[in-house]
């Protein structure tokens, strides 16, 4: 464990807690893409298949349970909670996320480190996580005005993967034969997808104006 990875995990944890806090306290999911949340639940479900078979550390198991629990409860809130669901803007959240799932699955079947069910599922979760934010970014473009909790959520979500890239660089230089191209490339793609959001987020923060994304 290194500081970059720990900071990345804490940032990731903060992003899901910010979202849960927003939904649970103000009972609203305005501006939140249910599709991105469903994709994230799928990412965690396919990545943490080893939850009950390989014990790595208490920290690892605990964090996996938190991510699984939070992502599925967020989906539940937006889908079924009688108050929260009313603020879900399904006419705007129209990204066909199934078009993301299938290519990621096919790609995982083609490009993976080992052709086993667990490894393909794990690789699928990496590719899917890289594009899971797209419905959310599209929704933000459409709804234009971004309340700051949603802005913070997306920012933290992007920052966590950027910190993971630092972690991979650190591990590459400190651990012999630590090479995982699939992880690195999908993590880089994921972070680049946030790049334009980061740019506008930083601009709005610097000029102290409300975050507006160009149409």
């Amino acid at each position: 464990m290194n500081i970059f990875r720990f900071a990345g995990d804490m940032t990731h944890l903060a992003s899901v807690l910010v979202l849960l806090l927003k939904i649970h306290t103000i009972k609203s999911c305005a501006g939140i893409s249910l599709k991105t949340q469903e994709l994230y639940a799928l990412v965690f479900a396919t990545r943490y298949l080893d939850l009950f078979t390989d014990y790595i550390s208490l920290y690892n198991t605990l964090m996996k349970l938190i991510f699984l629990g939070s992502s599925f409860s967020i989906v539940w809130y937006i889908r079924y909670h009688k108050i929260v669901r009313r603020s879900y803007d399904k006419d705007q959240d129209t990204f066909r996320h199934y078009f993301l799932v299938l290519p990621c699955l096919l790609l995982a079947l083609l490009i993976n480190e080992k052709f086993t069910f667990r490894e393909v599922m794990w690789t699928f979760s990496l590719y899917l996580e890289a594009v899971a934010i797209l419905p959310q970014l599209v929704l933000l473009q459409r709804t234009r005005n971004i309340d700051n909790l949603t802005g913070q959520y997306v920012f933290l979500l992007g920052a966590y993967r950027a910190l993971y890239i630092l972690n991979w660089i650190y591990r590459y230089f400190t651990e012999p034969h630590y090479v995982h191209w699939i992880t690195w490339i999908s993590g880089l793609v994921q972070t680049l997808l946030y790049a334009d959001f980061f740019y506008y987020y930083f601009q709005s923060w610097k000029n102290n104006v409300k975050l507006e994304l160009p149409a």
Binding site: H12, D50, I56, S57, K64, F67, Y164, R171, H177, H180
Partner: peptide, 10 residues
């Protein structure tokens, strides 16, 4: 679990 594998990450 060989700790150097990336599977020890979240």
């Amino acid at each position: 679990i060989n700790a150097d594998s990336v599977k020890d990450e979240l």
